[in-house]
Simulated scan of single mutants.
Amino acid sequence: MEKKGKIIRVTTVPRSLGGLLQGQLKFMSQYYEVIGVSSKDENILDRVAKQEGIAVVPIQMTRKITPVQDLKAVYQLYKLFKKEKPDIVHSHTPKAGTLSMLAAKLAGVPNRLHTIAGLPLLEATGAKRLLLDTVEKATYACASMIYPNSFGLNDIILKNKYTSAKKLKVIANGSSNGIDTSHFDPSGYTKEDNDKLKQELDIAPDDFVFVFVGRFVKDKGINELITSFKQLNVEFEKSKLLLVGTYERELDPLLPETEREINENPNIIPVGWQNDVRPFFAISNALAFPSYREGFPNVVMQAGSMGLPSIVTDINGCNEIVSEGINGTIIPPKSSEILYQSMKKFISDPTYTNQLSLKARDMICERYEREFVWKSILEEYKKL
């Protein structure tokens, strides 16, 4: 097949390039020459190159505000764009968006696209919020199109006047990459598989397991989750909380009492970072995901595709994937009491929880199948 042009996709860290866009770069490389750009981490970046069948270029970018390093990265991106002359530069993640949109504008790239998958700045206040708002507006000004990955995020961007409606578009039903429902399929795990993992984690066959997957940070609602579970666990001894992920203490630390409870409560089971989260979904009964902010959370789609009902907060993305009383329940953010009540209902009313489970997978398959999202992005590229 003759390729129609060149696309450079940029993320701040290579884990996002290989995970957030898994499979998509390989799909697009059938139609375009694709180059991936992300920070240096030879092991991960080389793995992404092999996995996706694309060329990769390391350019160091930081997730924090680091003016000297940021200017250096802009210059390196500018040089790369001038050399490669791409038809499209498409960025993901906040810092990569700011740096690559500016560099692409300076380099005269005709199509400068940035996908918004969440706005960390929404939790900032005072001078920091003012600075982040300014940077956000500058990013959007340098881009030719902005793709919020949820309709709620689209509304937030307009409400904050970061850019005009004509520059915004939500592709398909939302999501940056959709989900491979054949990969996230509970039928891939036998009772024997599940029993073995439960035994390894000291989970009894009749325990009710809530699972959280993500970073252990304040913004993900972990403080509230631990507070709620502590209260629940006193009432329901057969409850377990499975935590899949890692701390980010330098960026968004948890309360000391939260960490202490995680370390000391035998019914809270932290299993660290996992390359494959499916076995942990397979042994769980429900997802608890009380995040303060999201773009379009993959975790909620993954859990649903694995047949799990979800407790999510009433924030963009989450409240689009979950429909109240159909495949989960939606609660206000930052309320450990309402989270506790919802978790209690899931345990104490098995008929209700089973009804939600029956709809969970079907809703994801119907709306967010990965190839449907990829083809929708491809059509957008072709229009450009």
Results as ranks from 00 to 15, higher is better:
348 S>Y: 13
326 I>L: 15
353 T>N: 00
331 I>P: 01
359 K>A: 12
326 I>W: 03
339 L>G: 01
331 I>V: 08
308 L>G: 02
362 D>V: 11
345 K>Q: 13
353 T>M: 06
320 E>A: 05
345 K>H: 12
328 G>S: 08
322 V>Y: 01
308 L>H: 09
336 S>L: 00
353 T>L: 00
347 I>L: 11
341 Q>C: 14
346 F>A: 04
309 P>E: 06
359 K>E: 12
323 S>G: 09
317 G>F: 08
344 K>E: 10
357 S>L: 03
361 R>G: 04
367 R>Y: 09
340 Y>K: 12
313 T>D: 00
312 V>N: 01
352 Y>F: 15
312 V>R: 01
360 A>Y: 05
322 V>I: 15
347 I>N: 00
334 K>Q: 11
324 E>K: 13
316 N>S: 14
307 G>C: 10
368 Y>W: 14
354 N>I: 07
368 Y>V: 07
339 L>F: 05
346 F>C: 02
339 L>I: 09
370 R>L: 04
364 I>P: 07
313 T>C: 11
352 Y>V: 09
354 N>M: 10
355 Q>I: 11
320 E>R: 03
362 D>H: 14
366 E>D: 12
309 P>C: 12
354 N>C: 09
330 I>F: 03
358 L>N: 11
368 Y>R: 00
346 F>N: 00
359 K>Q: 14
345 K>R: 14
321 I>F: 02
315 I>E: 07
354 N>T: 12
314 D>N: 13
324 E>W: 05
346 F>M: 14
309 P>T: 12
307 G>A: 11
334 K>C: 00
360 A>C: 08
337 E>S: 14
350 P>T: 09
363 M>H: 05
320 E>S: 03
324 E>M: 08
361 R>K: 14
355 Q>Y: 13
322 V>F: 01
314 D>H: 08
334 K>N: 02
338 I>H: 06
350 P>V: 11
362 D>I: 12
308 L>V: 07
316 N>W: 06
318 C>A: 14
315 I>Q: 03
354 N>R: 10
325 G>K: 05
328 G>L: 02
346 F>P: 02
342 S>Y: 10
351 T>G: 11
359 K>Y: 09
312 V>L: 06
360 A>V: 07
